[in-house]
Nucleic acid binder design. Structure first.
Length: 569
RNA sequence: GCCCUCGUAGCUCAGUGGAUAGAGCAUCCCCCUCCUAAGGGGAGGGUCACACGUUCGAUUCGUGUCGAGGGCGCCA
């Protein structure tokens, strides 16, 4: 996690909010000390900064300040001497357990007082389901576009990864007070859909024993046969498969419906489904082309109309209108993104498979060429790498056109929604993922999601056996909490808001899973090391309060990745 | 050839401009008369691909080399 930076202004603003986290408070304290020790720094216009970081090694305290190292050159003094001067100037504060230690080349290691450390529990209870949320977004609008599968077949595992990633990003942004709209864009016309219709037609004719030639590159999956059968059932008048248009509409509707069911089973919902065909019917494609021509960024060559995307950082210019008069897919894509901007989304995020990364530069270039004030990096792209699906020790090729591929539904049916979602977001989206079906099937209890869920269920179980009123745990004396396990857990709880904020800023859902795994590990260690339901009433209540707060944070974290928090397992 | 992403333990992957680079799986050893053993504790396992540069300090930033995957069409 990058160190947070603080300056006077930020510290002042933060102090206006009702709750100042310990890190901010520590930063303010040290800034004061630094200015007392080195008053001249106050007048420095340079980016003078106090960095408060969390040491990797817990023995180094809750926080560490490395300003002495960073200022050594400017102040012309030895780092350790600077550190001594800063510590000497430190005002008295209830935050600290004692005078900070100066360690190594000049780190200042800070240990919080027990009171400061444990107050996060009260914060968790007070905020409950809202604990961890922030307000980076300031209620601004953002669109997250993801999945965007064409209705030519069931969703495959790659779509699943996109769905889990996109939805979690949306949830992360919502937690930071962004006003999020989830959008699914799909192509319901064009060559691939035509291909779909021809594939269905071939199957219908096969059924009717009519000589049928399967289209080149047609969809050979069994789902086409099912659709063909249902089509004939519901359209007995066209048993010979002569109404291609009707078959196309039927197939698209059927596949869209199936995709919706899959997404629903995955707990993913969209606010808007945007049809590519509407860009044509609404005249937006023509309008976009006309605008680009008017802006003077186009030229004709070899009978085609080109856009000078190289003026905006693309590798080569792109064809917009082919010599046969039809448009390349690039044009409706630009038109589509123009609508995002015009619909008031000053920020847009597009989640795509990494195999589409080649289109990023030209999309950014296309939008710039519109000269309509769209920011250069618009939209933000989040790419997810390919998934290698293994079965019986062999790789299964994911090929939509071949028709033999692992579907999202397969995974949900075999390992469940929770495990599938967790698995898809637990890794950085730009690293490749190996999904071993055999492993997921035969040893599903080893899936890391159970580890986290089990921590939650364990806490529920303990609280049930205690049998007391959970609400009373909000206001207990936490001073009996003194063990290393308790301190570790308290620190982890305090990290949650920052984890969510970082994950949202970096559009990196996997950070939440990493955090949850760590929090669950600390709970399990604590569980094995200490008994909670002890005789000593004060100690018991303090421990129950701590684990109840932990339960809340586990629940909140799981909610962000769209995974349930079971009370029993 | 050009562009993008990546290269960290046997495997799958986290992480970081700082102090001893982590987890899970796999291997080995321990822990249920005790709140769920779907758990915990411990051992072994690393030139953070390689080289150079920037820096007080580089596994992290930059450049280059090597390697892997992907993208480079008047396909979507």
């Amino acid at each position: 996690m990058p160190p947070s930076r603080y300056n006077f202004r930020l510290t002042f603003e933060s102090s206006m909010s009702s709750f100042i986290d310990n890190k901010t408070a520590v930063a303010a304290l040290f800034q004061e000390a630094l200015f007392t020790a080195y008053p001249a720094l106050k007048n420095e216009d340079l980016p003078f900064i106090i960095e408060v970081e969390k040491p990797k090694n817990p023995d180094h305290g809750h926080f560490a300040v490395n300003s002495a190292l960073q200022l050594a050159r400017k102040l012309g003094a030895k780092p350790r001497d600077i550190a001594v001067a800063i510590v000497a100037a430190l005002p008295a504060s209830a935050l600290l357990a004692g005078p900070p230690e100066i360690a190594g080349p000049g780190f200042i290691n800070i240990r919080l007082s027990a009171t400061a450390e444990s107050r996060v529990v009260n914060t968790v209870f007070a905020a409950a389901d809202d604990f961890g949320k922030g307000n980076d977004g300031n209620a601004q609008k953002v669109m997250v576009e993801f999945v965007s599968a064409n209705p030519t077949g069931p969703l495959h595992v790659g779509h699943g990864r996109g769905a889990a990633t996109g939805d979690t990003i949306a949830r992360l942004l919502e937690a930071q007070d962004w006003q999020v709209s989830r959008e699914f864009y799909y192509n319901d016309a064009g060559a691939q859909i035509n291909n779909l219709a021809l594939s269905v037609q071939a199957r219908v004719r096969e059924k009717a024993n009519i000589d049928a030639t399967f289209p080149e590159g047609g969809y050979r999956g069994d789902y086409i046969i099912e659709i063909a059968e249902r089509y004939v059932q519901q359209n007995p008048q066209d048993a010979k498969g002569e109404n291609l248009d009707a078959m196309q509409k039927f197939a698209v509707a059927a596949l869209r419906h199936e995709q919706d069911l899959d997404l629903k089973a995955f707990d993913v919902q969209f606010d808007v489904y945007y049809l590519e065909s509407s860009l044509y019917t609404d005249g937006l494609v023509e309008k976009t082309v006309a605008h680009l021509v008017k802006m003077g960024h186009t030229y004709e060559m070899d009978g085609a109309l080109w856009l000078k995307t190289t003026d905006y950082g693309d590798d080569k210019d792109r064809v917009m209108r082919k010599s046969d008069g039809s448009y390349t897919y690039f044009v409706p894509d630009v038109a589509y993104h123009v609508t995002k901007w015009e619909r008031g989304f000053t920020r847009a995020i597009t989640e795509l498979g990494a195999d589409h990364h080649g289109s990023l530069a030209r999309m950014h270039a296309g939008l710039q060429a519109m000269d309509m004030g769209v920011p250069k990096g618009y939209p933000d792209y989040v790419l997810h790498q390919m998934i290698t699906v293994m079965r019986s020790g062999a790789e299964m090729k994911i090929s939509k056109r071949a028709g033999s591929y692992v579907t999202l539904r397969d995974l949900i049916d075999e390992v469940g929604r929770d495990a599938t979602r967790y698995f898809f977001v637990m890794r950085k989206s730009d690293s490749q993922l190996t999904f071993d079906i055999d492993l997921a099937n035969s040893r599903s209890e080893e899936n890391p999601v159970y580890y986290v869920q089990y921590a939650h269920a364990r806490i529920c179980s303990v609280l049930n056996q205690w049998g007391g009123e959970a609400a009373t745990l909000k206001a207990v004396d936490l001073s009996p909490l003194a063990s290393k396990y308790e301190s570790d857990l308290l620190r982890a709880l305090a990290d949650f808001p920052e984890t969510l904020r970082t994950a949202a800023r970096e559009l990196a859902p996997h950070l939440v899973c990493v955090y949850l795994g760590d929090l669950a590990a600390k709970l399990h260690s604590y569980y094995n090391a200490e008994k909670f339901l002890v005789e000593d009433e004060g100690l018991k209540l303090a421990r129950l309060s701590l684990i109840a707060a932990t339960r809340q944070v586990l629940k909140n974290g799981l909610a962000v990745v769209g995974v349930s928090a079971p009370e029993k397992m």
